[in-house]
């Protein structure tokens, strides 16, 4: 299990686990997108608490979900980013999207 989702108060929370790389990203993406399309949440939260490793595939995953949820008029929040992932997050310039909480 690499992603676990919860839908409460119009907020879809996707908890991510383990290592996010190019191999894992597609199944995570498919699961989140199918839930986003059927539930049409006001907010999508990507929770990185359980992520032990991430390469730029994780950045692609965030940018893609940002677009996806914007299309249905929702907003994206990236929450609980571990210290070990902050270097790649800041390198990517993803802060400028205003999604990091």
């Amino acid at each position: 299990m690499v992603v676990e989702t919860d839908f409460t108060d119009n907020i879809l929370t996707a908890k991510l686990y383990g290592e996010i790389d190019h191999h894992k990203a597609s199944s995570i993406r498919n699961k989140i997108d199918s839930q986003t399309e059927s539930l049409r949440p006001k907010e999508l939260h990507l929770d990185f608490t359980g992520v032990s490793f991430m390469d730029s595939s994780g950045i692609g995953l965030i940018m893609g979900r940002y677009r996806q949820v914007s299309l249905i008029g929702g907003t994206l929040k990236v929450v609980n980013v571990p210290k070990s992932l902050q270097k790649i997050m800041s390198l990517s310039g993803i802060d400028s999207l205003g999604v990091l909480k």
Partner: peptide, 11 residues
């Protein structure tokens, strides 16, 4: 077009 961020070499 497979949602790559284009950051590989930058990283």
């Amino acid at each position: 077009n497979d949602e790559r961020a284009g950051l590989g070499f930058a990283v």
